[in-house]
Write a protein that binds this DNA or RNA. Sequence first.
DNA 1: TCAAAAGTGTTGTAACTACACCCATGA
DNA 2: TCATGGGTGTAGTTACAACACTTTTGA
Lengths: 243, 243
Amino acid sequence: MPDDHWTPPPVLLAVDLVILTLRESVLHILLVERGIEPFLGALALPGGFLATDTEDILAAAHRELREEADLDAAGLHLEQLGAYGAPERDPRGRVVSVAYLAIAPGLPEPVAGTDAARAAWTPVPEVLTHRVRLAFDHEQIFNDGLERARAKLEHTALATAFCTPAFTITQLRTVYEAVWGVQLDPRNFHRKVHAVEDFIVALDAERRDGPGRPARLFTAGSRSSLFPPLVRPTPTATSEVLP
Amino acid sequence: MPDDHWTPPPVLLAVDLVILTLRESVLHILLVERGIEPFLGALALPGGFLATDTEDILAAAHRELREEADLDAAGLHLEQLGAYGAPERDPRGRVVSVAYLAIAPGLPEPVAGTDAARAAWTPVPEVLTHRVRLAFDHEQIFNDGLERARAKLEHTALATAFCTPAFTITQLRTVYEAVWGVQLDPRNFHRKVHAVEDFIVALDAERRDGPGRPARLFTAGSRSSLFPPLVRPTPTATSEVLP
DNA sequence: TCAAAAGTGTTGTAACTACACCCATGA
DNA sequence: TCATGGGTGTAGTTACAACACTTTTGA
């Protein structure tokens, strides 16, 4: 603790968001094109500074989610990733950023909210293969967020946050495949999901699009931690991992 | 992002530490008695404010570890838990704290460093049963830190951070039992630990104290992630969990 | 020779992978 | 009746808990 005559140096607090969703079976992240220096024109995670002296950090994340992505808080997963505070991470001065991971159900079109005109869903493989470069230390934050999402799919019901209220088991499997970047056996997946009580509950409805047997519709159950867990396949030398 | 004429509100940045160690087979946490208001006289996590404008947050954690606990950075585990920034968490004003989890090998006596005169190792069960109350939101941070440590024992070699450079398998098992608060079968534990390649490597030495067959000494190997993992026993209705 | 602690073998079970197979629908 | 996708059955394998058993020491 400091002594009475010394005042600690103040810092500016920002919030940055890793917002993930599924679009046409591909994992996407919401990125914005920066309109001001530094990194003018570069892509970055949506985010911003704390609005007032008394704003809660989680509330700030919710606000940015609304302002920059036009996404409502209701029914959307939001959790903290951590604080990023290297002294030189922002050339404007000492800015510490608290990063959040948000998961949204698949949205039909790129959002067009107030500040969100420049916001665009970007395929995650584009970022992973460095075809897209991010401003600041946002690539680090993105990597941490993606790894958090991948890990939490194993032990929690996070996958349902990617889905609309009613979904088929195949849609749920597509979530796992897109986030993990692997192929899963549909038949074993079907049973594993059913083996966890209250992970998904059957609705009294079916979905019939194209040909093939109609699929039962489900909704997220009350269970939040999965047992037995759905473990990621261990990458072997022979197995192929999608980018 | 803010417009050019508006300045975001500054906050004060603190660092708080959850420092865990094992003392006589019981998990302990380092707590300090507060010497100033608020919460004067109450127990709290060691920590303090950022020292300078340009100090890295992780460096600040290392500095507090040295100042408040007289612990050297070398060979000690330190990882970030997250940011705690509720507006009313500190009555003095807007203080955002970045919490860290530190794991230290068992130390013979309560540390007596510069600021650490009032620091004391406190048994974790005392805190869990609310016989010890913590200042600010430090109980929340403590719970998050403990859960992080418990979870990481399963999948990483974190347990070796609790041990001196040379340790027996029984000592390693004691770490798991103390942190998880369960009893483990010594024979199955022995094999599971050996099944993970490079988790522990045998030294050419034995330890012989009291009666009984001398135990082989080991040291931490190069492996950091454990496969197969050492999974916590699922608490059942009949099983007893130590406080 | 006994107690204590280290370490090994064995057995039944749970959960998994891989794949053969059956079911229900639209064209 | 065929292609397409949904869903079930089964066999071999891995990891595991439980516990009987052997080994090596100090007193």
